[in-house]
Write a protein that binds this DNA or RNA. Sequence first.
DNA 1: AATGAATGAGCATTCATTCAT
DNA 2: GATGAATGAATGCTCATTCAT
Lengths: 207, 207, 207, 207
Amino acid sequence: MTSIPEGSEDAGLRRRILDTARHLLVQDGYQALSMRRIADAIGYSATSIYLHFDSKDALLHALIHEGMMELRDRLRDTAVEHSEAPVERLRALCECFVEFGLENPEYYEIMFQLRPERMERYPAEKYRAARKNLDFFAQALERGVERGIFEVDDSRVSASTVWASLHGTVSLLLADRVDVRIDPETFIDTAIRQALRGFRASAPSVP
Amino acid sequence: MTSIPEGSEDAGLRRRILDTARHLLVQDGYQALSMRRIADAIGYSATSIYLHFDSKDALLHALIHEGMMELRDRLRDTAVEHSEAPVERLRALCECFVEFGLENPEYYEIMFQLRPERMERYPAEKYRAARKNLDFFAQALERGVERGIFEVDDSRVSASTVWASLHGTVSLLLADRVDVRIDPETFIDTAIRQALRGFRASAPSVP
Amino acid sequence: MTSIPEGSEDAGLRRRILDTARHLLVQDGYQALSMRRIADAIGYSATSIYLHFDSKDALLHALIHEGMMELRDRLRDTAVEHSEAPVERLRALCECFVEFGLENPEYYEIMFQLRPERMERYPAEKYRAARKNLDFFAQALERGVERGIFEVDDSRVSASTVWASLHGTVSLLLADRVDVRIDPETFIDTAIRQALRGFRASAPSVP
Amino acid sequence: MTSIPEGSEDAGLRRRILDTARHLLVQDGYQALSMRRIADAIGYSATSIYLHFDSKDALLHALIHEGMMELRDRLRDTAVEHSEAPVERLRALCECFVEFGLENPEYYEIMFQLRPERMERYPAEKYRAARKNLDFFAQALERGVERGIFEVDDSRVSASTVWASLHGTVSLLLADRVDVRIDPETFIDTAIRQALRGFRASAPSVP
DNA sequence: AATGAATGAGCATTCATTCAT
DNA sequence: GATGAATGAATGCTCATTCAT
């Protein structure tokens, strides 16, 4: 009944905070992300942020969650686009993950490199949601196993190990720990190819 | 006869600083590592640290260097112990690396996860020394290629990708990002096995 | 009726900071002026100062600016009060300057003695404002020249040299570098008289 | 009787400390002068300086004293070189002073701009020695008075006021407080000329 | 005569957070 | 819903000085 148009003001500020935080994160890195800077950037007082987030950690959790959702969407789209050939799908998923990581280095940092003990516990249910991203890999593997293309003991475990490979690849690139003489594209391609080769059935289809 | 002043007091403090820094690093992470905390932990004044290290960065560099040397020694020993079979040697090297990472999480973060922009450039010559650790993997691969066991385009690149896999594995474990339902040992074994399978020659031993 | 929050609390603290800074400045000198000391002196936390000033330099700039304004007001009043006789006006301006310096040693140091390399550049527009103070002297000289009382090559240059004389006089007095056997009043009078004599036309009134 | 050649080792280090301190002073300014830096520069431990100077203040006092002596020597030489014409001598003394100040800005700072209250009291006897420099100006004035060229009430006072003028001139130049549009040489010349004109007898020598 | 080890005090600045309004 | 004022704790680092040897 008040003069505020639709009541979406509230949700609006929350969004602006998150968007700005993400921007600052991408621009200046995790270390430089502070409540005051976010507040300054949106033209509100620092105090205002606390009306929408209990703490900086809570804000970060929300951010991580968004990142996970974004990644999930990308992986889902990728899975949908490659609904047939398991190898192709798996390769596409791998490329998608690496691409996401390299395009969003700071997002990547808070999503996968922040140690949970060092933050107010990241709520369990969000971890579960995050883990869902692994299912795309697991499903692709299972489908490949069904068709005799892949050989895998436990798809959940193997999905985790592919993920580990990709994570290592992205991490080293982001941390600038790859020999400069190696072309990044080559590095990524080789890494993905190697990961895929690790799954192919021993004696493909020799009757 | 009292001219020997009691032994290595001097080296002693330097060591205690390094050890304490390492401990704090694993306990609370890089972000929380401060000169004052180190000083407090050893019961000295913060100023004293500067008698042994020019700056916080210098201290970290020393720590990184130590870690690199330790890792190199371990890898060298491993390589020597497995002088024959390339597959075995590579597997052993992989296990050695993972073991090192899990046993020395304090080193691991600064050695492999710290973004260089956040630290005064780690001196070039030390980077070179660090990269030498990769050579153990490259050599093992090359030897395998010579014997027709491995199939690899560029051993330098492939060494980097194995390393990426291992690094991803260790990172996820240290960051507590692996599904709790997966046994760590299984995870590691699978990761290493997968990495190795990625190198085996296409038609292994068809006579 | 209670909506007026008690008056100028806000402006109040800013003022207290400036005043306290000025006091500390004269008490212990520029070198000893620190944000903490100011804060301690007013019973606030050091952080609070940053709510009113962006940096220590900004605070000093504000102080310098205040001093310049105060001096300008005094000189302006003096010029107005002595609108006629150029010699009298110039003398009055000189006395005014010296008086200001001796009465406001706190301002004086930062206004005229601080080496600019030691401070973030004092904004150009303020320097321009500061220089305006010299115009009072230049104008008085010019008027005297018009009337044939003064003989001067370039009034801007000569204004600067009078100023130099006065500045030297104030500086030596403030730094306690004048022979104790010399009476300060005599010293000042002599200095001003000498400066004025330096301008009088060569053949004053020979008919 | 020991193996140390002549015993001048001691005096030698004292000298090196002073010379180095002066060098650092000139190079980096008073603010940057620290015991450790001096020590580092001569390759001795900081502690060693304390064997030769009770404190940093004592070292500074010695430095100031040296500066005073150097200035005295220069003024004396100048006085000797211009033994005849009082006006010329006074002008030469003025030029000598200004030159000294501009050539040794940092020396100048500690000699004339350091507030004595902010240092352990600069010993009285040194002040007296320092003041002797003024006598050169006083003598030149007196000689001019004797010959009817100058008109002066108290040569001691007037010497102080010339000095004030010169000091103001040097100070403003060093502090970069002179209008950039004014040529420094012109500024100095005008200042000195004005100071001299302030002393000339009213009706020069009309019988 | 010289030093290495050590320190307490100090610096400007930033941070996440609280609280009364 | 939003804020201005305020803060305690922390940061890396430098300084003059002391003391036992």
